[in-house]
Design a protein around this nucleic acid. Sequence first.
DNA 1: GGAGATTCTGACAGTTACTCTCATTTGGTA
DNA 2: TACCAAATGAGAGTAACTGTCAGAATCTCC
Lengths: 191, 191
Amino acid sequence: MGLRERKKAKTRAAIQRHALRLFREQGYSATTVDQIAAAAEISPSTFFRYFATKEAAVLYDPVDPVFIAIAIAQPPELGLIPAMRATVTDVLQRFSAEEMEFVRERQLLVFREPDLRAATMDQFAEGIDQIAGVAAQRTGRAPDDFVVRNWAGAVVGVLLAAFLKAAGDPESDYLVVLDQALVHLEAGLPL
Amino acid sequence: MGLRERKKAKTRAAIQRHALRLFREQGYSATTVDQIAAAAEISPSTFFRYFATKEAAVLYDPVDPVFIAIAIAQPPELGLIPAMRATVTDVLQRFSAEEMEFVRERQLLVFREPDLRAATMDQFAEGIDQIAGVAAQRTGRAPDDFVVRNWAGAVVGVLLAAFLKAAGDPESDYLVVLDQALVHLEAGLPL
DNA sequence: GGAGATTCTGACAGTTACTCTCATTTGGTA
DNA sequence: TACCAAATGAGAGTAACTGTCAGAATCTCC
């Protein structure tokens, strides 16, 4: 990696770090892009070269491609839901304690702020496509097959419900809550 | 209803009608609030008194409380999913052909525009609470019971997947697609 | 039907997110 | 060192909001 790319990565990280700090200290909407830019020692113009919107500075998170890759790499003899469970476990266990704290803090911020929450929900909707892709690959069906997409919708739905619960309750463990949600789905959602 | 309330309802409807027309004719982001206000013959200030944001002029839709009321009113001997199916059918059959066309056109607009889509996804997330409330009432469980919320998440998930499909395909019939999604969920989502 | 209280409206000024353009600087390369 | 491409900063401009205030429309009570 040349100097240029290293510098860009550092700038991106600095912007995100200062943005999250300011959001925590004084709230999301009370923090202006100009303040973030000043804290990161760049011009406001440059902020928008790194993040298309103020939201993106919070939401940018390259975990999705990792999730998909790990899901596809699960042993083929696993059933679909066991494979999803294993994927969730794998992904979450990669996080260190601090990273987990970081993720949780961000979740709290996101679910408080309407715009951020809406953007996150949109990411969940895209998750349907991605999970449908995984399911298609593992079952040999087409990714736009109705039952595949419907199944993916249910998976995203229970994960979303679990996220909403875990975000609201600081005591709960993401790993446990998400896994229980998938177990319950696998059992046919008995009430 | 006094003159004041009737006038307000008329103004609200006029804003929404002109907004949707302008969005259709020239696109969402190319249409300014000032243009909508001018078309509806009100001041920009007044626009924001009726709708908190430009988005809200598209998204405002008093169908949700109706949906919940109808769901709760389903005969108690019906199972949960049959009750949801009956509710979806009841609600959609109330729409006239023109109303259906209106709904479909709005869906297309919403799913094209990122901000609108995100706001809609947020409404779906709120739907989890509401559907969990219905399920709680019909089963005598608590609305924040884990299995109730998880079940509601799955229902919202499959409905979301179905909506995304129906919105993308102008040939498809909302009623059929949504009902099939619930049938598939009831059957345990076999692949 | 009119006086007074209440609510609605429009005008206006201000903030902020975001876009575009252009000159300058910085890093990569021969 | 000299040249080219990419990154940056400065500044002007647009549009979505927000808050305030005076005037107009509606309601209520007599």
